[in-house]
Design a protein around this nucleic acid. Structure first.
Length: 460
RNA sequence: GCGUCGGUGCCCGAGUGGACUAAGGGAGUGGCCUGCAAAGCCAUGAUUCACGGGUUCAAAUCCCGUCCGGCGCUCCA
């Protein structure tokens, strides 16, 4: 049975969806005002992995991930760059989608936008006000009353009292609020800011209310999993919980948070000068290298990004691909069925809080087994290993095929001709000529591998 | 300051009471294979898991203390 760490319950729990066989999950997406960085990619990958695994495991998954297309940062950035908020948001949303596509993150089933849900949010805020869980402050907006939610803080294991002590430690407290912990549901518009009409005057929705409105609209009042980056647990997710429960919605049954990504021991952030956009990184390293590196670290462990780590993952990916090339060249039966024992080990690792590092260890063990089998000519065992590796790696979103070179017919023909020449030279023991051809190809980035079943070539 | 998570080999990084191998990957070294390479296989690599105490028949894993670091404390994936 699938189990995972539930942030709110602070324990690994067995997972049983509300509707057997169906999983509904909502993951907080980005606020689109800048290029996505590698940290965004990690969170996206974490939930992409969870989604793919649950699907591989046989669940029918409905995956929702939003776009926050109106907020303070968007307004500020639009002003700075002399554009409008909708234009800015649309532009960066496209950049986000493009880069995540490039990284191999599957599209969500629904990608709602905050600005499409203002009606629902206003209705929701009105309900909270009617219930006495929220109050308006003239000229400022509408606030949620944390006093109405006794469990406030439970998502991060703190009590309201403890949180009050911390409130104001870094940010000035608004003296108009009834409680320092109260937060905005609706923000009154300042001059020049985009606004929507509401019973409390023109303004725009607060951040937390967006996700509650979108998640419950698309997934129902109660759904299975709510995810997001670890830094969102408080206040964002905590406030979502307060709002939803203030309106007596079942809301998320489980909370999953992905750990941050650090560079040189520090969180990736522009202010620290260690900000790497996903685009820049993928210009240097293949998407699959980054995916493999991230999967080799457990999703709840703070991960370190460095060139050494990326280079290491690149080597690991090469190993996977070399095995695949070799197996295919050896003509193993590609319709062989998977090794049930290995699949069981993989499943056990993944069922235990999505243990991708241990799951990958199973895959690499199979690669060694398969290579050893080919060394001894045991193609049957190699075929089983090959089929299993393909299945399991595929479940994690890893493809063994690598860059397809078949598209470049001219190159294929040219290399093919040279390889024939080289084979003839080798047969005649004219190694000087054979090596000269190999060197020429190497100079063009073509690496040769001689196997008993012929020579394989690939681009580096 | 308060809270929380963590410090494992040259590097990345699993493992949270017990055996089997402190997983797996990268790098290194030795061997095999190869005409030579590449790929691959085998072997080797922490007698030890920040440091100091403690509990236990048994600790990387639990407890206490110290040092160091990440994240959160209403911008944040």
């Amino acid at each position: 049975m699938v189990s995972f760490y539930d942030t709110r319950r602070r324990a690994v729990v067995s997972f049983e969806p509300v509707v057997p066989g169906q999983v509904s999950m909502y993951v907080c997406g980005p606020t689109v005002y800048d290029d996505p960085h590698v940290g965004h990619a990690r969170t996206a990958l974490t939930f992409d992995m969870i989604r793919r695994y649950l699907q591989w495991r046989g669940f029918n998954v409905t995956f929702v991930s939003n776009i926050t297309d109106i907020d303070d940062n968007i307004i500020k950035r639009a002003f700075e760059t002399g554009t409008t908020e909708p234009e800015l948001a649309a532009r960066y949303e496209q950049v986000y989608i493009d880069q995540m596509d490039r990284f191999g993150i599957a599209h969500p089933d629904h990608r709602p936008h905050a600005t499409e849900y203002v009606e629902e949010m206003l209705e929701f805020i009105g309900d909270l006000v009617d219930r006495g869980a929220a109050y308006a402050i003239e000229g400022k907006g509408v606030y949620f009353s944390v006093a109405a939610h006794a469990r406030y803080g439970d998502l991060i294991g703190r009590t309201p009292e403890e949180l009050r002590e911390g409130a104001g430690a870094r940010v000035e407290v608004d003296v108009d609020k009834a409680d320092p912990l109260d937060f905005a549901l609706w923000k009154a518009a300042k001059p020049g800011e985009p606004d929507w009409n509401s019973p409390w005057g023109p303004g725009r929705p607060g951040w937390h209310i967006e996700c509650v409105a979108m998640a419950t609209d698309l997934l129902g009042e109660t759904f299975d999993i709510h995810g997001g980056g670890d830094d969102l647990a408080f206040p964002h997710h905590q406030n979502e919980v307060a709002e939803a429960e203030g309106a007596e919605l079942g809301f998320a049954r489980h909370w999953i948070h992905g750990a941050m990504l650090n560079v040189n021991g520090e969180k990736m952030a522009k202010s620290l000068g260690n900000f790497t956009t996903l685009s820049d990184l993928l210009d240097v390293y293949e998407p699959q290298v980054l995916r493999l590196l991230m999967l080799q670290t457990h999703y709840r462990t703070v991960m370190e990004l460095s060139d050494d780590a990326l280079t290491g993952a690149s080597g690991a990916l090469d190993r996977l691909r070399a095995w695949h090339r070799r197996a295919v060249a050896a003509g193993v039966d590609q319709t062989a069925s998977a090794d049930a024992d290995a699949v069981a080990r993989f499943t056990a690792a993944m069922d235990d809080d999505f243990g991708t590092p241990a799951a990958l260890a199973v895959v690499f063990d199979l690669v060694r087994e398969g290579n050893a089998a080919l060394n001894t000519g045991d193609t049957s065992r190699a075929a089983t290993a090959h089929a299993t590796v393909c299945d399991l790696a595929g479940a994690l979103g890893l493809s063994l095929a690598g860059d397809d070179q078949s598209g470049d017919d001219a190159l294929t023909e040219k290399v093919g001709t040279l390889l024939v020449e080289r084979d003839e030279a080798r047969a005649a023991k004219d190694f000087a000529t054979a090596d000269r051809i190999r060197d020429e190809l190497a100079a063009e980035g073509i690496v040769l591998e001689d196997t008993p079943d012929g020579t394989i070539w690939r681009k580096t």
